[in-house]
Each structure stands twice: as structure tokens, then as C-alpha cells.
Design a protein around this nucleic acid. Structure first.
Lengths: 192, 192
DNA sequence: ACCTGAACACCGTTCAAGT
DNA sequence: ACCTGAACACCGTTCAAGT
């Protein structure tokens, strides 16, 4: 059932990404097909290839949109640890806000197709904190590996219990504890 | 071209897993299809479903086999840090030993289908080191998130450069630095 | 320029039927 | 018990053709 999309008005990237996010929220990544996106937009799946080179490019934009939403601004007197924590907590929230969000963002980031803003921000925060240039990128990646890995685990766990597989439970404070471990390890790398 | 498989001898799990690993090494995860495995074994793809409930279960065994190979034994006077590092280095080597190995192991572990031995070992090492029971599992997971996340990045980077996408380079010591950050952060959680 | 409609070359999985 | 052969219900992607 195609929604009341204005006939003969060309598709915009924003429309496509918004629709993809809606479908992702409803049915998850495995059912986010080109056919589903096209059908929700009242268009043939082949029409999407006039706007994106392939599905990966489209999903890259979707990942960017997931990450762009809702990042809080730290107070001016916040320490670098508090800034880094806040950014990681927001990233965690953004990514777990959609089913399979961690899976999607992780793969797009690793393949270099979008989702690179968080890395740049974290590297910037760590550089401002005084972390040497040869360790700041590594530390930023380590933070992201933890944030995405933890979120991926949580969301897979949801899938697994849905299909009757028993896995270990995850405390709400589990993320905070792990984040504290990584931030403490980074702090030890500061000069002085 | 089916290899000289003894006719009418029932398929064993070891045969299937070995064949899957051979194909994985040759063509990567996207082309590791049920048809490819069957054809390499000289059997119809449907025959595999007599031994595994589905593809995920088969890939779970493959992930276990990848992880089971080549883990060195630490010397008796090694500190817990050295033991943990050694285990993580071996895991990193095992997982990067096959194309898309990190992707495969990560998803199987997260979905609770095999690949759980490394978690149990690391948790044990950390518990022996004196880490409290409420933080040892979290710390073990944090290590695995880093190891798998880093390996996943490296391997995706290989894919991306193959398809002409520019990404940041990764120093050989990058893994060691990140590992040091996490281990240092864990050490700060020890009592005394 | 933008989209349709139909096809191509695949997937994982199921299942009656054979031995 | 183990496997075949064929089908089912899908995929992502391409491409001539329309407007």
C-alpha cells in the first residue's frame, strides 16, 4: 500500500533514508530489502538505483542518520573523561535505538562508507585532552570497538532469546563498567 | 568437480567443517554458500540439512574450529597481564587467519552459537588474577570486543581497499597499543 | 532525468522420493 | 539413516523501454 507520495515528484535522499529507518524500526535489518523500501515509497525497487550506486551506499546514509540523532552537549567545565563518556553514552543510545543498529553502523564504519563522524569527534576530544597524536586515533578506535561491540552483543542477545537460545544476562551497569575500564586505560597514556 | 570422496560413506561433522574452512579461505564469507559446501563435498546442498539444523549452526562449528587452532601456553612465571595478552594475541591471530574470520566469530559468539570458549578462558584468567566476580565477565567481554572489533576493522579494510575505498591505515603496533589500554584499565579494577 | 517492468543470476530451506 | 532432485519463496542488480 503506497502512502500519499506526491506523484511525479522526484525521490529525495532524505525521503529514502527516512523510509529505510521506518522499515528498520519495524522489521529489522534482514527484512530491510530494496523491494521493501521501494514499495513503502510507492516506487519500483529499481528506481532506488537512480539515487544510490548500490544497497551498501544507501545503508551508509542510513547509518549516518542513526548516528546524527541526539548527541548532548557537555557543560563547559566538564573534564575530558566526562566529555568522552557522554559521547560514548550517546553513541550507545543512538545505535541501540534501532533494531540491528549496531550491526549496521559497525559494518558501514569498518567498510569506510559513512559513520565516520564519531571517530573524528572522539579523536578530537582525546587530542584536546593532551593524548599524543600517535595514540589518539588508536584510543578513539578502541572506544568505538567497545561501544559498538557492546551494543551489538545486547541486540544479538535480544534476537537469540527471541529464538530460544540461552545466553548470559547483561546488567544495565555493564556498559558503564566497560566504558570506565577503557577510559581509565586511556588516561594512563596521558603524559605528565 | 567433486573430489575422491568415498562413495556411500556418511558425511562427518569434521569433513563438513574442514571443507567449509577451505572454501572460506579461498573465497570469503559471502561466497561460503550451502551449495558451495555441498558441491565441494560431492553432495547436494540439501544433504547438509541432515547434519545441521541450518546454516547458522554449521557456521557456529566453523567459528569454533577457527578459535580452537593455535593457542600458545604461557610460561609458569607469567603475570596475569602476560597471560591475558598472550591469549588475546592468539585470538587475534586465529581470527585474522581466515578472510572474514572476525565477522564470522563475532556474530556466532554474539548469537550464542558457539565461539564461547575464549570468553570462559579470559574470565577465568581474570578471576585468578583477583578481579571481583561482578567485574570479571564484563572485563572479559571488553577484551573480546576490542580483539574482534580490531580484527574486523583490519579485514574490512582489506575488502575496502580491494574495492577502491580509501580508509585510514592501521599500524602493526595499533593492536598492541589498544590491548595495552584495555589491560591497563582492567588492572585499575583490582583490589589492594 | 527519473522511473517502470521484466528479467538475470543467485540465495537458504523444505520435502517427497529413493536406497 | 542418509541422500537426491526438484521446487519454493525469496534476494540484489541490470537494462531496455517509456515519459
Amino acid at each position: 500500500m503506497p502512502p500519499p507520495r506526491h506523484p511525479r515528484s522526484p525521490l529525495t535522499h532524505a525521503q529514502v533514508v527516512d523510509t529505510a529507518l521506518t522499515i528498520l524500526a519495524r522489521v529489522g535489518l534482514p527484512d530491510l530489502t530494496m523491494r521493501a523500501i521501494g514499495s513503502e515509497l510507492g516506487v519500483q525497487q529499481s528506481a532506488l538505483y537512480h539515487h544510490y550506486a548500490n544497497k551498501q551506499a544507501l545503508l551508509g546514509s542510513v547509518a549516518d542518520e542513526i548516528l546524527a540523532r541526539g548527541s548532548r552537549t557537555p557543560s563547559h567545565d566538564a573534564t575530558w573523561q566526562e566529555r568522552v563518556r557522554l559521547r560514548c553514552q550517546d553513541l550507545h543510545a543512538a545505535v541501540t535505538g534501532y533494531p540491528d543498529g549496531a550491526d549496521l553502523v559497525m559494518s558501514m564504519w569498518a567498510f569506510g562508507m559513512g559513520a565516520q563522524a564519531p571517530f573524528d569527534e572522539l579523536r578530537g576530544l582525546l587530542a584536546d585532552a593532551g593524548l599524543p597524536d600517535d595514540v589518539a586515533p588508536t584510543a578513539a578506535r578502541t572506544l568505538l570497538h567497545f561501544v559498538y561491540g557492546h551494543a551489538y552483543d545486547e541486540q544479538s542477545h535480544a534476537h537469540a532469546t527471541r529464538s530460544g537460545i540461552v545466553t548470559a544476562h547483561r546488567t544495565p551497569s555493564d556498559f558503564e563498567t566497560g566504558l570506565d575500564i577503557v577510559v581509565t586505560g586511556i588516561a594512563a597514556r596521558l603524559p605528565d
